[in-house]
Amino acid sequence: MESSEIYRRLTPIFQDILDDDDLVPSADLTAHDVPEWDSLRHIRLIVTVERELEVKFTTPEISALENVGQFVELIQSKLTRA
């Protein structure tokens, strides 16, 4: 799956969970940039992405992420392997 398609799939998930209809996830976006992005919403984001995109992550993979761009790369690597 192209990264642009992953961003397209992630956008409504981010908007719903982070309560911001105008939010468009970009590569350099981090949790620090979004006030609503707390630890519980972070968990919901990961769970929802796993369900919607049918991928599974590990704790070290998630812990190592520094921004949305790395998250998209991780998703892309999972989907490529699948």
Binding site: H42, I43, R44, I46, V47, E50, R51, K56, F57, T58, T59, E61, I62
Partner: peptide, 11 residues
């Protein structure tokens, strides 16, 4: 319905 080991969460 879903178990996420990455964030220790269940649905």
């Amino acid at each position: 319905s879903h178990c996420s080991e990455a964030v220790r969460a269940l649905e």
